[in-house]
Structure formats: structure tokens, C-alpha cells
């Protein structure tokens, strides 16, 4: 019982970690809370779903297509819309992503309706026994995919020129501009990479979850919490916090009460926000 809860917690945590690392990148670089993140997750899942059902893809082979498409969507949102209001009020920036979320989510409802769709393959449902804990193949793949994509994201941010530029912009946009970095185009890339991470999560979720317009809502709420707990700009912070949240939520659900598990997580989040607003793993630098 405990082990099963732990296993499903680790799986859930790996999904949270992927979604949150994308959100964290956007939040850390563009300094905007992207409320459209959940809607983008749903969009990515619809992309994968239609590639599987209409174009006959294997669920996991949709990965490159969805990731590239989601990068372009994110890049377009940032360059086409958000870059134009980077200098206006915080409220405008907050609300514009809310507006985008409403548009994407309800656009999906208008086009494809509320119905629950699922696309899976028989091999994804195979169950493995590891150290007495039962994992489905799909969950194992999600776990592996999460780990690989997080490592790749870390390497991209720390070992490439573009990644270094992204980190420079996230720390000091003005100085970065003085050093010859095109800040607005970096914003576009950061938003694109953040959305691409959502695309990765979406592909691994399609064989497990039903595809429907509001599928992203619970994940994105948890992702906000993960980002705040993990601290800004830290890939490992987001990963660790995501994993922790997944495990805590699942253990609470199994041991105490299923219905109150999200409440418990929200409550923990609020308390931590009050006492460590820069996150469990973050540094205090961002308070201005």
C-alpha cells in the first residue's frame, strides 16, 4: 500500500517536474506567471492525440513533432503578444496569459468538445515489477523521459551559448542587453523552450490520461506551487519540488484522505510561501 502510493507518487512527481521546469524557465526569464501553461499542456496532448489517431503515429514517436510544434507555439505567443507588453503594468502581463488560457482552452472546447478521448497502445499497459513495486510501462517511460528531458534542459541552459544568454537575461536583462544579447528574442526562445517542456510532458501523458480541454488545470496549479517551492531559475529545484509534491500528495491521499489531498498540498504551499517566499531551494535574491 505504502509502496504503491510511493510509486504512483514518483510517477506523478515526474510529470509535475516536467510541467514545472517549463513554467519555471518562463517565470525565471520572462518574469511572467504563465497562466496559459495548463492550456498549453492540453494543446500538446491534443496534438499528440490527433497525430496518433489521424496520422497513425506510435504515441511515443509523436515526441519530436509535438516538441517542435509546442516550441513554435510558445515562441509565437512570446514574440507576437507578450513581448509587446513587457514594459506595461504587471497586471497586464498577468491578465494576458489568463486571456490566452481562456482562448486556448475554450477554443479546444469549441473545436473538439468536452468529450474524453484516449489513445494508448497495448505495450504501454504492460506492468513491470521492480523491487516489489508495480509500474506500468507507460509510467516507467514517463519517468525516464522526465529524467532525460530535465538533464537535457540543464545541459542546454548551462553548456550552450543560447542557454548562457538565457541565464544572463534572467539575472540582469539590462546588462545582458548591454553585452549585446537581443533580450526580446531570448524571451521568445525561453518561452518556446518552456512550452516544449510541456510538449514532452504532454506526449508522455497521452497514453495514461484522458485528453480533454481542462486536463491541464490540476497539473498547472501544482506546477505553480512547484515553481514557487523550487525557487526561481533552478532546474533541479523544480525537479525536486515536483517529485516531492507528487509523493506527498499521493501518500496523503492513500494514508489520510483522497479528497483532501489537494487541500493539504495547497495549505503546505501557503504556509511555505509565508515563511520562505523565495522557495525551499531558492535564494532570497529575487525580493526587490
Amino acid at each position: 500500500m505504502f509502496r504503491a502510493a510511493l510509486a504512483s507518487g514518483i510517477f506523478l512527481g515526474s510529470i509535475y517536474a516536467m510541467v514545472a521546469s517549463g513554467l519555471n524557465l518562463i517565470f525565471g526569464v520572462v518574469k511572467i506567471i504563465n497562466f496559459a501553461h495548463g492550456a498549453l499542456l492540453a494543446l500538446g496532448m491534443y496534438m499528440a492525440y490527433f497525430l496518433i489517431t489521424l496520422a497513425g503515429f506510435d504515441p511515443y514517436l509523436t515526441l519530436p513533432v509535438v516538441v517542435v510544434a509546442m516550441f513554435l507555439v510558445g515562441w509565437a505567443i512570446q514574440s507576437g503578444i507578450i513581448n509587446r507588453i513587457m514594459d506595461s503594468d504587471r497586471t497586464s502581463q498577468l491578465l494576458i496569459t489568463f486571456g490566452l488560457a481562456l482562448m486556448v482552452q475554450n477554443g479546444a472546447i469549441m473545436l473538439w468538445g468536452h468529450e474524453y478521448r484516449s489513445a494508448t497502445v497495448p505495450y504501454a499497459r504492460k506492468v513491470f515489477d521492480i523491487l516489489g513495486i508495480r509500474f506500468s510501462f507507460a509510467a516507467l517511460l514517463a519517468l525516464t523521459g522526465s529524467a532525460i528531458s530535465l538533464v537535457l534542459l540543464y545541459l542546454f541552459l548551462h553548456r550552450t551559448r543560447t542557454g548562457t544568454a538565457i541565464r544572463a537575461v534572467s539575472q540582469q536583462p539590462d546588462s545582458a542587453a548591454l553585452a549585446g544579447i537581443n533580450v526580446k528574442s531570448i524571451y521568445g526562445i525561453a518561452f518556446g523552450v518552456g512550452s516544449a517542456m510541456v510538449g514532452v510532458a504532454a506526449v508522455f501523458m497521452v497514453p495514461i490520461y484522458f485528453v480533454q480541454p481542462s486536463v491541464g488545470d490540476p497539473f498547472v496549479l501544482m506546477a505553480f506551487i512547484t515553481v514557487v517551492l523550487g525557487g526561481l531559475g533552478s532546474v533541479w529545484g523544480a525537479a525536486a519540488a515536483g517529485m516531492m509534491l507528487g509523493v506527498v500528495q499521493n501518500l496523503f491521499a492513500t494514508m489520510v484522505n483522497v479528497e483532501m489531498a489537494p487541500t493539504f498540498v495547497f495549505l503546505v504551499f501557503m504556509v511555505i510561501m509565508f515563511f520562505r517566499p523565495y522557495g525551499l531551494f531558492g535564494r532570497a535574491e529575487r525580493i526587490s
Binding site: 481562456l102 482562448m103 475554450n106 479546444a108 472546447i109 469549441m110
Partner: peptide, 15 residues
């Protein structure tokens, strides 16, 4: 969903 889609569109254009 058309009404909420319109809300979103208005919000984006407004901002």
C-alpha cells in the same frame, strides 16, 4: 465555449 473564448480574446486585445 464561445462565450469564454470571447472573454479570453477581449482580455488579450484589451491588454
Amino acid at each position: 465555449g464561445a462565450d469564454l473564448f470571447a472573454n479570453g480574446l477581449i482580455l488579450v486585445l484589451l491588454m
